[in-house]
Design a protein around this nucleic acid. Structure first.
Length: 559
RNA sequence: AGGGGUAUCGCCAAACGGUAAGGCAACGGCCUCUGACGCCGUCAUCUCUUGGUUCGAAUCCAGGUACCCCUGCCA
């Protein structure tokens, strides 16, 4: 394990405290957690937090973590999502081993328990329609009213429920409800719906069922069946906890899991809800679920984020119960930290301007030795061709340099990284006054170090690529998808905050020759500009496409 | 308005009655053939607020205030 894969440092948090105590007191000998996604969409960075919490806790406390699909609503779920979710969890580096489960594996047991509840007089078949149920439910401040069907006989409910299962009734005509308390201040306890009729095939169990359990009736019991000790979910389920416990109290379940809640992740400059992500995809505002600008795990993966960086991010932000907004820069810092250690360096000119070195012999080529990593000699070195005509980045030249600019300008000198010091002697412009090319002279004695032959020290070091040896590629520069820290914020349509320059495609970038055999696994630091990786989808041998994962920090441009 | 939560540095987050950890950011400085990286240093007399208990409170009590979640046959 290389140092960057080690988790930064393990901070204490309330979940660890609870588990510590449960283990110490002997309440549990070992812990079992689970990551329970509904397969109705792709995973995003918020899910990564949950995955890291659940798998991380199991790892750190010597327990195990299950991957369980919470697949109780076939109307929204698809096999495609199941596959993608598994892949994303694996990508993060977690392994559920033998413990892959589906809530739907328990449908028969759940059905039997529903029958048990009816027999106990604790559930009944409801004939009211959805609208009527809503009306009877009352409001936040007013109690609800009992349904007229609440007092129907056990036998009648039993009969109706089995016929619901048999598919005798159309969708929406009846539901099974728990008989709890229509006056409860907690609305979730006002006779919640347990089963609804849905003549829809299910991605995992096919068309075996015409009725499907609701989340509340499935989750806790499934936890119990799997022997989950700590059922960790997000805060919005807190008001469901009394219901979760009501089922465990009233059913002959084999274990007694406990639910704990934590605050979900919010990230600035993006949206996280499945609905909005889906809309961005459907409206083709982004290219797909794996668009590199999206906070989806597939998007981050395609962009070039490393699993280690995402895991470190999750570790770094901690776990709490207060609503929090994490600044995206935290995520960006995590990839930089990882890639700074692992990424080999290379030179690439994104916005090329030609620099002709007039005093360098025509046709001569020299091999310059460049370290692949300045702090890690073990990563070796490579040779780079130098010749009379080179490309430099437009950003590294200013005709009228601003104060403090220490790159190239007329009459000025700059060190070409791993090569010579050059001086700009003239500018060639076209009739519009635009720069066509630059001319300069090199100092033959300046190959080593940053001192000129007469002993002066040059301030700037810039990257370059030999024109004769360069490989042309497309580079995609990504920026935040939204220009507002919280595009989700009240009222307004989040789409109005879309950042018009969230992607900039540069099609004439000049890369050093060694990059021509770049593979899609290697992330490079293009020196002085950022971290890049081949786009695994669009890059071809004819036309290489690189994605910018993240920029380097730039304290100069910041000012 | 009913129920359930949460309030500690710009953003996260520890601290469990004993006198405010840590990370990120920021700011100084050093180093540097990446204005990157690295290194050194600075960064809450104070914990939403008002009272109270106590030798002692971010931690306990009482009253305010702000924000979040709950009225799907979604999860």
């Amino acid at each position: 394990m290389s140092s960057n894969e080690q988790i930064a440092h393990i901070a204490n948090n309330f979940l660890r405290t609870i588990i510590d105590e449960d283990l110490k007191s002997g309440k549990h000998n070992s812990i079992v957690t689970r990551f329970p996604p509904e397969p109705n969409g792709y995973l995003h960075i918020g899910h990564a937090k949950s995955i890291c919490i659940n798998f991380g806790l199991a790892r750190d406390f010597g327990g195990r973590c299950h991957l369980r699909f919470d697949d109780t609503n076939p109307a929204k779920e698809e096999q495609e999502y199941i596959d993608s979710i598994k892949e994303s969890v694996r990508w993060l580096g977690f392994d559920w081993g033998e413990h892959l489960y589906y809530a739907s594996d328990n449908f028969e047991q759940l059905y039997q328990w529903a029958v048990f509840l009816i027999e106990q007089g604790k559930a009944y078949v409801e004939d009211l329609n959805a609208e009527q149920i809503r009306a009877y439910r009352g409001t936040l401040t007013e109690p609800g009213k009992d349904s007229p069907y609440r007092s129907r006989s056990v036998d009648e409910s039993l009969d109706l429920f089995s016929r619901m299962r048999a598919g005798e009734f159309p969708d929406g005509t009846r539901v099974l409800r728990a008989k709890i308390d229509m006056a409860s201040p907690n609305i979730n306890l006002r006779d919640p719906v347990l089963y609804r009729i849905l003549h829809t095939p299910h991605p995992h169990v096919g068309d075996a069922w015409k009725i499907y359990p609701m989340y509340d009736f499935a989750h806790g019991q499934t936890d119990a069946i799997e022997g989950i000790t700590h059922s960790i979910c997000t805060l919005e389920f807190e008001s469901h906890k009394p219901l979760y416990e009501w089922f465990l109290d009233n059913l002959p379940v084999p274990a007694r899991p406990r639910q704990y809640e934590f605050a979900r992740l919010n990230l600035t400059y993006t949206v996280m809800s499945k609905r909005k992500l889906q809309e961005l995809v459907q409206l083709q505002i982004v290219s797909g679920w794996d668009d590199p600008r999206l906070p989806t795990l597939e998007g981050l993966k395609r962009r070039g984020y490393t699993p280690a960086s995402v895991k470190n991010f999750c570790e770094q932000i901690g776990v709490g119960r207060s609503d929090s907004w994490i600044d995206v820069t935290n995520l960006e810092e995590c990839v930089r930290a990882d890639l700074n250690i692992t990424a080999p360096r290379a030179m690439a000119v994104l916005r090329p301007i030609k620099l002709i070195i007039d005093n360098y012999p025509v046709g001569q080529v020299e091999e310059m030795l460049a370290a692949n990593h300045p702090q890690n000699p073990e990563m070796g070195s490579r040779s780079i061709n130098f010749s009379r005509e080179i490309w430099i980045d437009a950003d590294d030249f200013m005709e009228i340099p601003s104060k403090g600019f220490h790159r190239l300008s007329p009459g000025g000198e700059v060190k070409l990284r791993s090569s010579y010091i050059v001086k700009c002697t003239s500018i060639t412009k076209d009739k519009n006054g635009d720069i066509v090319e630059l001319h300069g002279e090199y100092d033959p004695a300046s190959r080593e170090g940053i001192h000129t032959s007469d002993g002066r020290k040059v301030k700037g070091v810039i990257h370059w690529v030999s024109a004769a040896h360069a490989v042309t590629a497309e580079v995609r520069l990504f920026d935040r998808l939204f220009s507002d820290p919280n595009p989700d914020r009240g009222g307004a349509d989040y789409k109005q905050f879309l950042n018009p320059s969230s992607i900039e495609t540069l099609s004439n970038c000049k890369l050093e020759a060694s990059l021509s055999c770049a593979d899609s696994e290697t992330r490079y630091q293009f020196e002085r500009t950022g971290y890049f990786r081949i786009d695994p989808k669009d890059s071809t041998s004819d036309k290489m496409v690189f994605n910018r994962i993240v920029t380097l920090r730039d304290t100069w441009n910041q000012k």
